[in-house]
Amino acid sequence: MLPDPSISVLGPDPTHRKCILNGNAFQQDVIQSFNGWQYAAFYSSLLEDASKEPLYIHLSRRKLPEGKWETLVFDDYPQTTDDGHNTVQLGVCPGDGTIHLSYDHHCDVLRYRHSQPGVAQNPKSFAWSASLFTPHLSRLPGLGAEHDELFSYITYPRFVQLGTNLLFSFRTGKAGLGDDHVAVYSAQTQNGGGGGGGGGGGGAYKYEVLGTNLQGVDNNPYIHGLDYRNGRLHATWVYRGFVHYEGWDDPLDTKHKQQRGPNSAENNHNICYAYSDDGGRTWKNGAGELIADLAKGESARPDSKGIVAFDIPKGSGLSNQEAQAVDGEGGVHVLNRDAVDGEQKWKHYYRSPDG
């Protein structure tokens, strides 16, 4: 029997914005626990009046199960865009205890910061302060200018723990016309060898871009989630077809940023599935057949064999980026909704561990 839930008020939620920034389905693990402590990231005003602009990123922590919450504020970056895409995402790297944040994106240049090593491994040793973190960054740690174009038009970042490492996923392009990419933050020893390690002592940590795991072809994938269980990385997604509109190829076009822009959810179709047993470097379909080796420049594509788990046509009310979970036995669960039966209903889509 589960205990009754408790409620913690960490700060005022913005009341004056049209769009929700805190608590969206695609904010994967924005509340998470690690090493006996819990962390939560959110936007709020610096004042108790929740209607005041601008908003700032707040990051809270507490010792489980009922420790007092501590909250720090990054007051060097005001968030001003009223757009529900522009959430904050939270990641913790087990290998070196760094805490990572990526935030305020809807087809924007990368916005990122991370803590110094050890903060999540030995929380009691660090006074909770924004000074533990880097300034606002537009590059991932360890990457140079050669990757700037890739990180110039980002939406939907997310973090996934991969053993001792940390995976970073993000979309490039626009609604109906984009791709998803993955990079991994991992330990590199001083002599150049790879590894995980428990404390990262003496190591330099940095990102490696693995490639484009999901490629759109006149469409874009919307990921329900990425989950790593028992050495396997699971991904489910829907595709959204692209409808051309006047000015779609104008670099200054912003119509696609509308909450219900020219390419909206009526073009969503199919629930797809793929998995990786090597941390996102190669991908297989549900039958275990290789469909993409990122090191060779390959990607899972809409025409890749065996990726469609549920065949759902366009115009069926299928939503995108609702929720995914993987249970301890490897069963994959997706919560979404469609009107295939003539009535819009929430549904539980399930893939057994045996496929």
Results as ranks from 00 to 15, higher is better:
261 G>D: 02
259 Q>F: 06
195 G>I: 13
217 V>Q: 07
221 P>R: 08
189 T>R: 14
197 G>S: 05
297 G>S: 09
247 G>A: 02
256 H>A: 09
251 P>L: 05
216 G>S: 00
225 G>R: 07
282 T>S: 14
262 P>Y: 02
284 K>W: 07
194 G>C: 11
223 I>V: 06
227 D>M: 08
204 A>K: 15
267 N>T: 05
286 G>W: 01
240 R>S: 04
245 Y>C: 01
199 G>P: 08
218 D>I: 02
250 D>A: 08
246 E>Q: 03
258 Q>W: 12
210 L>Q: 15
273 Y>G: 00
274 A>T: 15
266 E>L: 03
206 K>C: 09
175 A>P: 04
235 A>R: 13
290 L>Q: 04
208 E>I: 13
259 Q>I: 03
252 L>P: 03
235 A>G: 11
169 S>K: 05
228 Y>G: 00
244 H>A: 15
244 H>G: 15
302 P>R: 10
178 G>P: 11
183 A>L: 06
219 N>R: 10
239 Y>P: 04
223 I>S: 02
259 Q>K: 00
263 N>Q: 03
238 V>P: 04
271 I>L: 11
302 P>C: 07
204 A>D: 14
257 K>P: 02
215 Q>E: 12
279 G>N: 01
209 V>E: 06
281 R>C: 04
298 E>R: 12
278 D>Q: 02
194 G>Q: 11
248 W>Q: 01
174 K>H: 05
252 L>N: 07
196 G>A: 13
190 Q>S: 05
255 K>N: 03
209 V>K: 08
309 A>S: 07
251 P>Q: 07
170 F>I: 11
191 N>S: 14
281 R>S: 11
301 R>F: 06
206 K>M: 09
203 G>S: 12
